[in-house]
Design a protein around this nucleic acid. Structure first.
Length: 507
RNA sequence: CGGGAUGUAGCGCAGCCUGGUUAGCGCGUUUGACUGGGGGUCAAAAGGUCGGAGGUUCAAAUCCUCUCAUCCCGACCA
């Protein structure tokens, strides 16, 4: 890492190692450099710092609006779930029992060595929710008697705990934040429609707000949510060409309503089990966002989620110009803030801290502020501003008024450019594969650059397929919803009548 | 939960194999001067019980045991 090279010919990157040198390490360093989060004293848990939190807040705000626009309301259910609730749905138990935090006592008492020891054992242990199907279902069972009580469409924003063996910042933490929607319907069709609708909401959010292209698909039997009849997913491709499950929407059929007796009387007076769905996205999306757009100089944020879309840096050389420069910056800020982008005021900050120019610039580069506007005496004289774009690194002088008038379009172009770049990466690294040799070559260990998404026909539920892909550390991501419904020959077994799926290494 | 690596100042590291005076370096921080459209320059300074607990030894960052944590690779999952 060279300290300084003359004439701007330097290759020093703000983040080291770079993505190509060591992708996982780069990811950690971006989080640190952008001040998004830190590990906590509790293993596997993270502290989300203000800049990182603000990104999540923006995600929440947009998603929450989308949920409400599709007829959902928010509510809150308890953190603690009676252990017996989990036992009611067999597959659900299998899926989550291994990773539950369990509360067994309700008091602490002084111990023999001066410390504290748990006391007051609970009659029935409580688990900290790993997801809330069971406790919400138990309430729905009380609330539902008639078809007139349906549908129920509730979302909750909450934290959940899954005692993971291996954790990574944002992508997999023991405690994470998410929203979980839980709906209850009179008919199967309506529940299926809901499952699909919410997948579309997620895909819309991922692509239009996060600028992250996703593939909508259905999970295979082996990959689906424990207890679900079917699981729909949006799958993103990260810059290292691995797949990341970014959101899921589950059709739960009558599995949970049977287990929890969510029963209603239909119009014919018959008792029927309700049809339920659940769907969620989590703080993992922040990780997805980081990995999709950021570069070797740190975080890159799409304008729609950036806590600040524009940072104004006053260039103050002499004290007697200070006042006029700051006033100019303030009025620029107000002009920008009077404009609206993506349903909100443009988010602008002035950074007038006593700090050297270059250092201050890099501070904001690493944090991913989309546009950097520098204002010095010369700019004021010419009524212009010097604008730097985070994604391309381009800088240009532009008339102040022109800049203000074009700001919305500039941000939208920025947003679109990130999406286009990410989409190109995915398209360049997606390949239809029709033979086992091709598959083996594509995911060959020899060349790290190999791999990406492979589209193959495959025979669902065949052990041969699972064995082969395990050999290459590849998983079946999903069966794309928009793939042609044609049947083909399974790449792994040679059987006909196979369906198409996306195969990839994944997080 | 298995395999591997690492834990020394805010960050990044050296020192450990071959124990031995006040534990170093770069960046950052503080102060002063000079600078000023760019991750400055010069000078000075502050900052560490070497992850934790035991042990071996006259003597431990260094050797041994245990433990905790982080990271990577697996298995498992948002």
């Amino acid at each position: 890492m060279s300290r300084k090279l003359p004439m701007g010919k330097q290759h020093r990157t703000a983040i080291s190692p770079t993505r190509t040198e060591d992708y996982p390490q780069w990811y950690q360093q971006v989080i640190k450099a952008a001040d998004l989060a830190e590990v906590s004293p509790v293993r596997g848990c993270m502290v989300i710092k203000p800049w990182g939190w603000s990104i999540w807040e923006n995600m929440q705000q947009v998603l929450d609006g989308m949920f409400k626009d599709t007829g959902h309301v928010n509510a809150y259910f308890p953190l603690f779930i009676p252990m017996s609730f989990l036992e009611k749905e067999a597959e659900h138990v299998d899926g989550f029992a291994k990773e539950c935090a369990v509360v067994t006592h309700h008091r602490l008492e002084p111990g023999p060595d001066g410390g504290l020891v748990p006391a007051g054992p609970l009659e029935e242990p409580l688990i900290v929710r790993p997801t809330s199907e069971t406790i919400i279902g138990s309430m729905y069972a009380r609330w539902v008697q008639s078809y007139r009580d349906l549908p129920i469409k509730i979302n909750q924003w909450a934290n959940v705990v899954r005692w993971e063996m291996r954790t990574r910042m944002f992508l997999r933490t023991a405690e994470f934040l998410w929203q979980e929607g839980h709906t209850c319907h009179a008919t199967k069709e309506e529940a299926l429609e809901e499952t699909r609708l919410m997948l579309d909401v997620y895909a819309d959010f991922a692509e239009n707000t996060m600028a992250m292209p996703v593939i909508k698909g259905e999970k295979t039997v082996d990959e689906r949510f424990p207890g679900a009849v079917s699981t729909l997913t949006i799958e993103a491709m990260i810059q290292d060409r691995k797949a990341l499950q970014a959101g899921t929407s589950h059709f739960l059929g009558q599995n949970f309503s049977r287990a929890q007796e969510i029963v209603f009387q239909d119009q014919q007076g018959q008792q029927q089990f309700a049809w339920t769905t659940s769907w969620g996205v989590s703080t993992r999306l922040v990780g997805a966002l980081i990995m999709t757009h950021s570069d070797d100089d740190g975080l890159v944020l799409p304008p729609r989620l950036a806590p600040k879309q524009v940072v104004i840096l006053p260039i103050i050389k002499e004290d007697d110009t200070r006042q006029s420069i700051l006033e100019y910056c303030e009025s620029l800020k107000q002009d920008l803030e009077s404009r609206y982008y993506a349903d909100g005021k443009i988010r602008v900050m002035i950074d007038d801290r006593e700090m050297r120019g270059g250092e201050k610039k890099w501070y904001h580069v690493k944090r991913g502020v989309p546009l950097r506007v520098e204002v010095g005496p010369r700019d004021i004289e010419n009524n212009q501003v010097y604008v730097g774009r985070r994604d391309t690194g381009e800088n240009q002088s532009i008339g102040r008024d022109e800049f203000v008038q074009g700001i919305v379009e500039t941000l939208e172009q920025f947003q679109q450019a990130l999406f286009d770049r990410a989409l190109k990466l995915r398209e360049d690294n997606t390949k239809e594969i029709n033979s086992l040799e091709e598959f083996e070559e594509y995911f060959s260990e020899k060349d790290e650059q190999q791999g990406g998404f492979a589209i193959c026909y495959f025979q669902e539920g065949d052990q041969q397929v699972l064995d082969k892909i395990a050999e290459y550390k590849v998983t079946i991501r999903c069966m794309p919803l928009d793939s042609n419904d044609q049947e083909g020959t399974c790449v792994f077994t040679g059987q006909s009548g196979a369906r198409q799926a996306i195969f990839a290494r994944s997080y």
